[in-house]
């Protein structure tokens, strides 16, 4: 009898089993975030008042563009170096390859605070880099490297290159080897094979990796907070500061709404593009 009930496969059992997780996500994630975003539209000053005042503030628009700029530069650098590294890793012989993958996983499993802190030691006024430069006589004064956009970008690249490497190794390994061999058997030089076969086939994976890094660095908090400080305020640090220091909840909600919309839009648009141009899908 139990078996018969089991065989009657309607969705009810499925719904029942996924209900706790579904309700948790809806109740504690969708509704709270929805409420925060909705709250920005019922402002007594008018429907779009919080947004108008956000974009009227020169400082806040600067923060938005700074955040976008940092995320974009981080993404491009991570793409270039991540792709080159992933290519080498994917070509490495078995044992070495596992070792290289583990070496990329390890920083990923180390917390963001620890990884940002490492750069604090390196880039500080009395940091290792300054000590080295002074000792080598390259500079006579310690350089101000901390709390610059460059410091934030270095920290972010450090954060996201392993992620890029790992996701691209997967992508490159999914490209069938015999397709590359077919290319060279037809007379394509290694360079021609790279440009005409390998790269086009890797593009969907590159897009996915770029989205991961862009959204990750667009919303990162600890790294810009530690390495950028107030001088390099980004959306995430501004959100925290508005909410927990100034108690400006409407302002914080507005920033949250802007971050959510930009992130979701990019994720949806890019994954749509990646799926459309994915030649492996058909």
């Amino acid at each position: 009898m139990t078996a018969r009930r089991f065989w009657r496969r309607n969705g009810a059992t499925g719904w029942a089993l996924s209900a706790p997780a579904t309700l948790a996500v809806i109740g504690f994630l969708l509704i709270p975030i929805g409420a925060v975003i909705a709250g920005t539209f019922i402002d007594p000053r008018g429907v779009f008042a919080p947004y108008i005042s956000y974009f009227n503030s020169g400082f806040r628009t600067t923060v938005l563009f700074r955040t976008l700029q940092i995320a974009a530069i981080t993404t491009i650098i991570s793409l270039i170096f991540g792709f080159m590294t992933a290519y080498v890793v994917s070509r490495a012989p078995g044992k070495l390859k596992s070792l290289l993958i583990v070496a990329a996983v390890f920083p990923l499993l180390t917390g963001v605070v620890v990884r940002a802190f490492a750069w604090l030691i390196i880039l500080g006024r009395n940091g290792i880099l300054n000590q080295t430069l002074l000792a080598l006589g390259i500079t006579s004064e310690p350089l101000e490297m901390l709390y610059t956009q460059g410091a934030v970008i270095v920290g972010m690249v450090y954060l996201f290159v392993p992620l890029m490497v790992l996701s691209l190794v997967g992508v490159l390994e999914n490209i069938p080897r015999d397709v590359l061999q077919a290319s060279s058997s037809l007379g394509a030089s290694p360079l021609a094979t790279f440009w005409q076969v390998l790269l086009p086939l890797a593009v969907p994976g590159l897009i996915v990796g770029a989205v991961l890094v862009f959204t990750g660095s667009f919303t990162a908090y600890a790294t810009p907070q530690l390495l950028g400080g107030e001088r390099q305020t980004v959306l995430a640090t501004l959100l925290h500061q508005r909410a927990m220091v100034s108690f400006d909840w409407v302002g914080a909600s507005t920033i949250a709404a802007i971050m959510t919309v930009i992130t979701i839009t990019i994720v949806l648009a890019m994954s749509h593009i990646a799926r459309r141009i994915n030649p492996m899908a058909t």
Binding site: T22, F28, L29, L30, I31, A35, F218, H240, A252, I264
Partner: peptide
């Protein structure tokens, strides 16, 4: 439903933290 369970890493974490606090 599958997408729903990925949402917590899709939306910015910091927004989620703030929303959970506020709401």
């Amino acid at each position: 439903l599958g997408t729903l369970f990925v949402l917590p890493i899709l939306v910015p974490e910091i927004v989620f933290g703030f929303a959970l606090l506020k709401s």
